[in-house]
């Protein structure tokens, strides 16, 4: 098969001062002061696929994207884009790709939105007539038409990011890298961006998008397949549905009880309970338990234990497993926890 992206045994090690700034995860450093940002990464992305790289900050997602986009050389291993080796023939790779990064304040403030889009389309050799059509259509979809003649310096973060999204898509690249494209955006703008991305992939079934994110819901709702990456290694790679099925087989229940004030939770010594998260809502006089059980049969033991302790279960509902549950099982901690460690 001709893969859109293929990596084999890809490895990237950072050395010296650069390491300290870029990668603060002491746990990933070896004794020589080196940081292994990527290790033995084997991935294949099909043409037409919207492929997600899911992981916490510092997991190696951006490093992988930088290598695939020719911004960074791998230390060892190979990576090909549209069949072309990124290290051996980067110029040919660049003709086939484009990139949009989130969470930055990028743009030439002196240019208008339309001028910026036109300029980059020119850099990619897109004819003027095609640029106009594509830019007008994309600005219309993303609600940017009224800002077309506005200087970039006057744009809000969200509007600027929409412009950057169009800048990335206007060349209609074979492979597009979206690095945390919704980072720092408000909910409404992030939703617009996601819809735009999904619609574009559906409209262009032969083109691929590689999306990095640490938003579980974004990966779940957008991506055809997801690779979960942590500390430079790919822990699993499959469709979101398969990941949830294979890596989050437990039964998860939400149980509402009257406010629990005795510390811990009322199920802490029950064998069938693998873990339980507790949320107290003092204003409502309620405590919510999110309980993960070994299997579905354990719920009887749970209600019985609550009854023994004189705690009324006000409501019990079974939750569908989420990508976060799969992530938790694969990596051993949630995204929030790993970001805390990273600091």
């Amino acid at each position: 098969m001709n893969w859109a992206i293929e990596t084999q045994n890809l490895r990237r090690v950072f050395r010296g001062g650069t390491v300290r700034r870029l990668w603060r995860r002491k746990s990933a450093q070896n004794g020589n002061g080196e940081t292994v940002a990527l290790d033995a990464v084997d991935l294949q992305v099909k043409p037409g696929e919207l492929f997600g790289l899911l992981g916490p900050n510092g997991a190696g997602k951006t490093t992988l994207l930088k290598i695939l986009s020719t911004l960074l050389l791998p230390t060892s291993g190979t990576a090909t884009v549209d069949g072309i080796d990124v290290a051996k023939d980067p110029e040919r790779v660049r003709k086939r790709i484009n990139m949009v990064s989130g969470g930055e304040h990028s743009g030439f403030g002196i240019l208008t939105v339309r001028e910026t889009i036109w300029m980059f389309a020119q850099f990619y050799g897109v004819p003027g007539r095609v640029v106009r059509e594509r830019a007008d259509r994309m600005m219309d979809i993303l609600g940017l038409t009224e800002f077309a003649e506005t200087k970039v310096s006057k744009l809000s973060t969200g509007t600027r990011q929409k412009m950057n999204i169009i800048r990335g898509f206007v060349s209609a690249p074979r492979i597009l890298y979206l690095d945390e494209p919704t980072l720092g955006l408000d909910v409404a703008v992030a939703r617009e961006v996601r819809s735009f991305v999904r619609a574009w992939v559906d409209e262009h079934p032969e083109r691929s998008i590689i999306l990095t994110t640490h938003y579980m819901a974004e990966a779940d709702s957008l991506c055809d397949r997801v690779a979960i990456i942590d500390r430079g290694r790919v822990r699993a790679c499959d469709t979101p549905a398969n990941l949830k099925r294979d890596w989050a087989p437990e039964c998860v229940y939400r149980i509402e009880i009257p406010l629990w004030t005795q510390g811990g939770h009322p199920l802490d010594d029950l064998d069938v309970v693998r873990s339980a998260d507790v949320e107290h809502h003092g204003d409502r006089g309620r405590t919510n338990l999110r309980v993960i059980l070994e299997n579905g049969d354990g719920i009887g033991a749970v209600t019985e234990r609550l009854s023994q302790r004189g705690v009324a279960a006000l409501s019990v509902s079974r939750l569908e497993p989420t990508l976060e549950d799969a992530f938790l099982n694969l990596v051993g901690h949630g995204l929030a926890a790993s970001e805390e460690k990273g600091r």
Binding site: F108, M119, Y124, P127, S171, R174
Partner: peptide
């Protein structure tokens, strides 16, 4: 051949260059 490759495999030499010069002039 895809649309992107049609554009980028034989891009006009002058167009990208003029666009960059125009940016330079604007700045």
């Amino acid at each position: 051949m895809s649309e992107a490759l049609e554009h980028s495999d034989a891009p006009s030499r002058l167009g990208p260059w003029l666009a960059a010069a125009r940016l330079g002039w604007a700045i």
